[in-house]
């Protein structure tokens, strides 16, 4: 009698189970347990409770219900996001490092939020007035290392990260006499989907700054400066100008900063390669991959890959990568 092939559950099914247990169930259990404990303390707590501390004691107050609900709500949203993002798995059925980070971050978030929330309420038990709440910096000092260690455990319990290794195709110099000079220029930008996501994120940042401007104008300067710099950088790095000539490769974002240059004598080899932004670089923009590559990653598909003489690789995704690679190979050869 012939038995069907050994009926092991496929790798992906196992990984999904791990994602659900480690990334969703455990974080939610932790936050629910914390919420339960905090709920037991409600009779002993002042109302409202201190929920934000400044340099000289508490400076923000809220209802005990929101302090209990917030970790639960945030964990729920983030765990859902982590599971959703990592559900499809890597091309070969494994987990990408970007997915593992999401799942581990879910654990980190749930523990750090729960411990800080519970800690901040614990010190207020028996108080008549929340204004007398003691400082809680010590709790954060405990919460974050614990959360970090647990996140590391979560990372280790997940399967080893699968790396997408796309083969690069070496580029040939453009045929022609040794005296020829080439100039290549092109604009590369992110796709519509990324623009929409970026617009939503920047819109949210703008709204947050607006709320801060109305509610607490005195403390607006620093968030506003950081927010505006982040916005300018984000908008600037959505589109890049690529120039290749006898001075080497130059990439320059829309507003002129950031930019990068690789001189011909720093170039060891030039190739084209297929790039998967999320899988290999964990996202879009100026990116660093865990395998040491860096570059301008704006779209899935063809990219120019430059290997420097020090072995480091620089990537630029672009629709005309083949032509760019040939042009750069021509320049580098000399």
């Amino acid at each position: 009698m012939t038995l069907p092939a050994e009926n092991v559950s496929p790798q992906l099914t196992r990984n999904r189970r791990l994602i659900i247990v480690i990334g969703v169930v455990i974080p939610l259990l932790i936050t629910m347990a914390a919420a339960f404990v905090m709920a037991l303390w409600v009779p002993e707590l002042p109302n409202p409770v201190a929920s934000h501390w400044g340099t000289s004691g508490p400076d923000g107050y809220s209802t005990v219900g929101s302090v209990i609900a917030l970790p639960l709500l945030m964990t729920l949203v983030f765990a859902g996001l982590a599971a959703f993002a990592s559900w499809k798995g890597a091309p070969n059925g494994g987990m990408l490092w970007a997915h593992k980070i999401m799942v581990a971050a879910s654990v980190f978030l749930s523990i750090s939020l729960s411990v800080t929330a519970a800690g901040s309420l614990a010190v207020q038990r028996g108080l008549e007035n929340a204004e007398n709440a003691p400082a809680i910096a010590g709790i954060a000092l405990v919460a974050f290392p614990i959360a970090f260690v647990m996140a590391v455990f979560a990372w280790l319990m997940l399967p080893p990260a699968e790396y997408i290794k796309s083969t690069s195709v070496a580029a040939q110099p453009i045929k022609g006499s040794v005296t020829q000079r080439v100039h290549f220029s092109s604009t590369t930008r992110v796709g519509t989907g990324v623009v929409v996501v970026a617009a939503v994120a920047l819109g949210a940042l703008g709204i947050a700054l607006g709320i801060q401007a109305v509610s607490n104008p005195a403390e607006l300067l620093l968030p506003a400066v950081i927010g505006l710099v982040v916005m300018a950088l984000a908008v600037s790095t959505l589109s890049w100008r690529v120039t290749i000539d006898q001075r080497g490769l130059r990439v320059r974002s829309a507003f002129g900063f950031p930019r990068a240059t690789i001189a011909p004598d720093q170039i060891a080899s030039v190739a084209t390669v297929e790039v998967n932004p999320i899988g290999e670089f964990g996202g879009y923009g100026w990116r660093w991959a865990p395998d040491g590559r860096s570059g301008i990653v704006l779209s899935k598909g063809e990219a120019l890959e430059v290997t420097r003489t020090n072995g480091k690789k620089f990537i630029v995704t672009m629709h005309d990568a083949q032509l760019a690679a040939e042009a750069l190979a021509t320049v580098a050869k000399k």
Binding site: I174, G176, S177, T179, Q180, R181, V182, H183, F184, S185, S186, L323, A327
Partner: peptide, 10 residues
């Protein structure tokens, strides 16, 4: 866009 010139050409 690729532009090629050869100063040695006639």
């Amino acid at each position: 866009m690729l532009v090629r010139v050869d100063p040695a050409s006639e």
